[in-house]
Every structure is written in C-alpha cells, then in structure tokens.
Design a protein around this nucleic acid. Sequence first.
DNA 1: CGAGACCTCCACCCTGGGGTGGAGGTCTCG
DNA 2: CGAGACCTCCACCCCAGGGTGGAGGTCTCG
Lengths: 216, 216
Amino acid sequence: MIRLLLVDDQELVRAGLRHVLTPDDGFEIVAEARDGAEALEQLGRNTIDVVLMDIRMRGMDGVEATRCVGELPDAPPVLILTTFDDDDVLVSVLEAGAAGFALKETSADDLIRAVEVVARGGAWLDPVVTPRVLDVYRAQASAQRAAAVALDQLTARENDVLRLMASGASNGEIAEALFVSVATVKTHVGSIFSKLGARDRAAAIVHAHRHGLVDG
Amino acid sequence: MIRLLLVDDQELVRAGLRHVLTPDDGFEIVAEARDGAEALEQLGRNTIDVVLMDIRMRGMDGVEATRCVGELPDAPPVLILTTFDDDDVLVSVLEAGAAGFALKETSADDLIRAVEVVARGGAWLDPVVTPRVLDVYRAQASAQRAAAVALDQLTARENDVLRLMASGASNGEIAEALFVSVATVKTHVGSIFSKLGARDRAAAIVHAHRHGLVDG
DNA sequence: CGAGACCTCCACCCTGGGGTGGAGGTCTCG
DNA sequence: CGAGACCTCCACCCCAGGGTGGAGGTCTCG
C-alpha cells in the first residue's frame, strides 16, 4: 500500500486523482493540501510514501515546497504533476529535488506507473520531457568522451600538468604540487601548448574545459 | 499498427518478444535480425517504425548498429533493450542516437509502453537508469543557474570582456573585438578579477567555465 | 544639481609566462 | 645494444599581463 499526499489547489484535480489512485491499485490517499505550507503541515502529521505536487499554487508554490520537503528528515520522494512543461519549470523543479515529473495530460495508467516507480525510489520523467533531458545528457556525455581522446595525445606527466593548469594553478604551484622545478613545469607546459595547438595558458585552459578534462 | 524490427542474437529473447508484442496490442513484427549487419539489411527491405536493439551481439554490436541506423535517411527510432545497465553502455548508446533505453527485466506492460512512446517520437528511459541521467542534468542545470548569479555582479561591459577572455582571447584581441584600447580592457579585466576573487586570468577563465558562462 | 556608477583612456613598473636551445637520466622496444 | 620517448633541469631573453594611481566623459537618480 503506497501512502500518498496530494498537493494541488484545485479541488477538481484532487478529486480526479482520488478516482485514479484507488486502494484497488494499491494506493491510499492519506492527506491532501492546497499549497506548500499545508503540505508541510500534513507531512508532519502523517507517514507519507510519495508526495504528488502541483507547481502553480497560491502561497508557497510547488518548487519551493519541493525544496522544503527535501530538507525534512526522512523526506518522501516528490512526484511533480503539472499542466505545463516549460524548460524553466522542469529545471527548477528537478534542481529542487523532485524524483519525478509527470504531465496532467498523462493517462491514468501512466500516472499509476509513475507513482509506483517513484515510491520504489526510482525516478520518472514524462516521455514528453525526456528528450530535452537527454539532449543535455548527451551533450555532457560527449564532452566527457572527447576528453579521453584529448588525454592520450599527451604524456602522463603532461596530463598531470594540464589538470593542475586547467584548475587555475600557476607554474610555481604546479611545480610544488608535482615536486619538480618550475623549469620542468615550463617544459611540460610548452609541449602541451604545441600538442593542443594552444597559443598560451588561456587557450589551453579553455581547451581543457571544453573537452571536459576537468570537473567544471 | 506499429511495425517492429527485432535485433537480438538470442532466439529465446526474440521468441519472448514475439509473445509480448502481439498484434492484439497493436504491434507487427516485420522482421528479425541477429546482429547489426542483418539489421541494416532488413531496414533496407522493410518499412519499420521502431527498432528493438540488443547491445551485446557478435559481429556489429548494438551501439555501432544504432549509429548506422541513425545515418539512414528516414531512420526509425531505436529502442535499446539490454540486460546490463552500465553507465558506459548507457552513455555510448544514447550518444549513438538511441531514442530509448529499456532493461530486459522490465515488465511486459512497461516494454509495451516504451515501444509506444518511442514510436510516437518520444524518448523512454528505464526508471532504473533515469536517476543517473537526472544527476547529470541537475548538475548541468545548476551550473547554468549559477551563471545568472555570477553575471549580474559584473557590469555589462565587464561581461563582454569576461566572455571573450573565457574563450581564450588576449587583451589585445578583446580590445579589437570591442573597439576600445588595450588600456580599457585592462581596467575591465582588473575589476573582473577583484569581483570574482580571481588572482589572474587563468582563475577567471576557470571561474567562467565552472559557472557555465560560456558554451564549453 | 550633486553623488555615484560606469566606460573610456593614460603612464609607470614589475613579475610571471612563454620561446629557444640545450643537457643528462631512465626506460622500452626492435 | 642503439634509437627514441619521456622526465628532469638549466640559462637567457622578451613581453603580455597585471598592479597602482590617476583623469575625463556620460548617465541615472534622489
């Protein structure tokens, strides 16, 4: 039995959810709230497995509420349920710690599945927004991949130097960190420049960051 | 009716899929293949709406095959169906252009849903791997957000300068690009350093990249 | 109007970064 | 073993970059 808290300021929406998420399917709607503040109150009073959260509400909105829920000890996962799929909203809400993002136009079956997934500790994205998330992921991933290519054109030591350089270290600091003289660092730095086709330190740092050689 | 191509070197798996993706649910299995090469051959011969692709196969593997499919004119979406959820595989396959990623341990219902979503042009991620994709997304998104914060602590002109500097331009180049003297650029650069708490150009570039001020 | 923020530019100085041309040591591999 | 790649270090030179301390112009806002 998955214990739910519904958070939506429209009675009609909550009524709809009550008809979709029935005990027959393994759901128990423990409490309801009409805005973020009420939601937090209800969370204090009840044991909840999943929070179903609307975004647009008067008072504390869904984004803020999600963030607050996440700060609770033993916080239940939050499944966002909204009408709109702006990128801004998606970003804010995922950053706020939401475990899932569903659109209100979703079918009942999909919603049930989404709640189950989130209850199990998984993450759920509406197929409509998944492509946009994947775009970001792909871009990030391909940068990481390019790093490997760039890396093996440099020697081991040059890589050490480049990493430090790319994090903003001066030649002196690099020398200290690697227990070698500044002269040695300069040599490495020089060959890094020629191998990467970089004119100066700045270009090399840009190169390193663009190719995901560092965390940034 | 969604027309399918099954690509898997194990007869047993294909048999299982034939029993799950039945005409009753709106699926027609038009063709089957046992590796990437056969898959491409079948794609040339038939009209396919969705390709169901295994990863581990002798000959051309699923990743390579997915890439090849993507290069075809009028390429159908590829739904990856695999036993393993290594991060490496996930990244490679999404980069290769897969529209979806499903695990073989998925329930029949979920698989049906996945195929439907992909056929409709959406993207589908198994809930098991979604959290990992979201982690990357979140990290990226919060970097973008931080950029806005960093940006408005600098003046308009300082931002212009920082952008150019962060792309590796020298003071002279920045001066040319902005139609001002090098002296002016130096002034801006100086105040950028103090505002960002950067010691030198290198640190400022690192800062800019870490906060997503530039595309890299 | 006066204060303050911003953009523009100047002169001076000094250090660190970068280019050139080496040298000696280790290690691997044909 | 000899060739070649790599790491280490040196001396010398030059200059772009960065710090300091200004100055004059525009624009906004109380």
